[in-house]
Computed example of a mutant assay.
Amino acid sequence: MSRVVHPIEQESFRRLRARLDTSGLPPLTRAVVERVIHSAADLEYADDLVMTEEDLVTAHAALHAGAPVVVDVEMVAAGITRRETVCRLRDAVAGDGRTRSAHAVRLAYEQVGPGALWVIGCAPTALEELLTLDASPALVIGLPVGFVGAAESKAALRESGLPAVSNVSEKGGSAVAAAALNALLYHPTSAEENQ
């Protein structure tokens, strides 16, 4: 089923493209960059985001084949449309030097196992915990926000070699993390393009 795009969204993307030429980017990279910029009205993300088209192609296929989507907080889940998500934050407790967000990641991993898409937009400690697990993710969208640990956790994600979407600065958040996942959800599969 194709997605109906509201005229306001169409106009927003038209204006975005009038201010920033994304036409030279590979298709999925362009989709992620544009949707993240659109969600934050922040053109600086064009130079701040880090990803590879190869990782996005693999993640896109896994997502459309039904791989689980795990989020760190309900705000990320609320922004992801057209897909159920797993969020275990309500079940988590802080303790043993671990934050609730870190414990929630561990609980989610116990539930979904390897191969999921992980969308972290709030807690750097959630991303740090994920990096300690043998999660074999299809993709990690690591865009936590904040002045304490956010940039460092994203740097650790990039250094891990896991397939990822991240950014260099402290900025990020639930809306941009959800937007990055939605870009992959909304991008047509080859079967949809041939219809």
Rank of each mutant, 00 (worst) to 15 (best):
Y45G: 11
D47W: 13
D48N: 15
L49D: 11
V50D: 09
T52H: 15
E53V: 14
A61T: 15
A62G: 03
L63H: 14
A67I: 08
A67R: 08
V70F: 07
V70N: 04
V71T: 12
E74T: 02
A77R: 05
A78D: 11
A78H: 10
G79R: 09
G79H: 09
T81W: 12
V86P: 02
R88Q: 12
R90D: 10
R90K: 15
D91F: 11
V93P: 02
A94D: 06
G97V: 08
G97D: 09
R98D: 12
R98Y: 08
R98K: 15
R100I: 09
A102P: 07
V105F: 03
L107C: 07
L107H: 03
A108P: 10
G113D: 11
A116Q: 01
L117N: 06
L117R: 07
W118V: 01
G121A: 14
G121T: 12
C122A: 15
T125G: 05
T125M: 06
T125I: 05
T132G: 07
L133D: 05
L133G: 08
A135W: 05
V140H: 07
I141C: 09
L143W: 10
L143G: 12
V145I: 14
G146F: 09
F147N: 06
F147W: 08
L157F: 03
L157N: 01
L157D: 00
E159I: 03
S160D: 07
L162R: 12
P163Q: 05
V165D: 01
S169L: 07
S169E: 11
K171I: 03
